[in-house]
Amino acid sequence: MLNELLRTHDGVVTLAQAQEAGLSKHAVNRRVRSGAWLRCAPGVYFVDDRPFTDHARIRAAVWSYGESATASGLAAAWWQRLARFAPASVEVTVPRDSNGRCREGSRVRRRDLTAADVVVDRGLRVTALPLTVVEAAARRDGGARILDSALQHNLELSSLWRAHLRNKGRHGAPRARRMLTAAGEGARSAAERLLVQLLKSAGITGWVANLPVGGYCVDVGFRAKKVALEADGFAFHSDAEAFQKDRVRQNYLMLLGWQVLRFTWLDLTEYPERVIAEIRRAISA
């Protein structure tokens, strides 16, 4: 029973789990003294016969705060395969009345979570997918990419809004609200405003917003250079009819001799330097 527990829990075990598997507290301490088990935190151990992976690190960090602790933010996003790399600092959400200080390598959020916002994934309590996406989206390190990926994989925007509204007042809530708004009906207009801000900040001139061209209106146009910039909001998050109309318009503009550059919200928020570099290259050609 203990071996199976260690195998499925990345080599991490709590004192309560070890005792349930038949070990006494004395037997656990004996393993620690011998060096077979490493003490990660009070009541949390790692069996040192395997690599200490990111899975083990995150599991140990969460379990070190007790049975009610929940992986959240970017830690939950990585655990649920929404992010490619595990965060260096593990975000853990604990109940408001929890005692104890923050441990090294982790960051604590004190908030009571509803049952709808918690799931158990491979034996670890993590925030449910909608809340994970909403919280991770507010983080500046890859947040927009996580939201974009979730929408592409058919996570309903309405479920994200419900998770957001159930957890008002949390860290990053205003930024998450702006991104959810941008992912909805206001996606294009929000992306257009961000594109204009980037152009102004970069000192690029000679452009006109909402420029009429051949019966269409381009988001931003450089008339003298025949370069049109289109802001699409979140990648692929539009209905099929809108997608088709955008492509018809783009083809028509290109037949008129215009070069069309398309940027998503993800491009504008995560890679602004690349966006500006592509625009400069297009208008200097």
Rank of each mutant, 00 (worst) to 15 (best):
G206K: 04
P212K: 10
E273R: 14
A136C: 12
A41N: 09
D117R: 00
S158W: 01
R96L: 11
V28H: 02
G142H: 01
R139L: 13
R178L: 15
A77I: 01
A115G: 10
R50M: 03
D232K: 08
L23Q: 11
T14C: 12
R177C: 11
T70W: 00
A18Q: 08
V92T: 00
L195F: 10
A202W: 06
R249L: 10
A228Y: 01
A231D: 04
R57G: 02
R193M: 07
E4R: 12
D48Q: 13
S201F: 09
L74D: 11
V62N: 02
G66R: 04
Y65S: 05
N167A: 07
R84A: 14
M254G: 09
V120R: 13
V196Q: 11
S149Y: 11
H26T: 12
A228G: 06
A128E: 05
V12E: 00
Y252F: 13
M254Q: 15
W207N: 00
A163I: 04
A187K: 13
R107Q: 12
R111W: 14
P87K: 02
A61E: 01
V227K: 00
L211W: 07
L15W: 00
L155I: 12
L129C: 09
S158I: 08
G203A: 09
I204W: 04
K225Q: 15
G206E: 05
A71V: 08
L198R: 13
Q80E: 03
L124C: 04
L157H: 03
P95R: 00
A173E: 07
V133L: 01
G172F: 11
R249P: 07
A235I: 13
W258F: 08
D148Y: 00
Q250G: 08
G105Q: 02
A163S: 11
Y252H: 15
D49Y: 03
P51F: 06
S149P: 00
G184F: 03
L151N: 04
L74N: 10
F263V: 06
R7C: 09
V218M: 02
V275F: 03
L131S: 05
L266H: 12
A76E: 02
A71N: 05
A116I: 01
Q17N: 08
L256E: 14
N251W: 03
E135N: 06
G142P: 08
L147R: 02
L2K: 06
G100P: 02
A18S: 13
K168F: 07
F243K: 13
V208N: 12
A173I: 07
G35H: 09
A150Q: 02
D246Y: 08
R30W: 08
G66M: 09
S89T: 15
R109E: 14
D49F: 07
E67I: 11
C217V: 15
N3Q: 13
L261M: 11
A202Y: 05
R247P: 04
S68H: 14
L38R: 15
L266S: 13
S64M: 07
G233I: 06
T8M: 10
L261Q: 05
L15E: 10
S68K: 14
D54I: 05
F234D: 01
Y216M: 03
R30L: 14
N167L: 04
S68V: 03
A18V: 05
W63H: 11
L255W: 05
R247Y: 10
R177M: 15
I279H: 01
H9A: 09
R33V: 07
G100C: 03
V126L: 02
A138V: 06
R110M: 08
E20Y: 09
D48R: 15
K225S: 14
R84D: 14
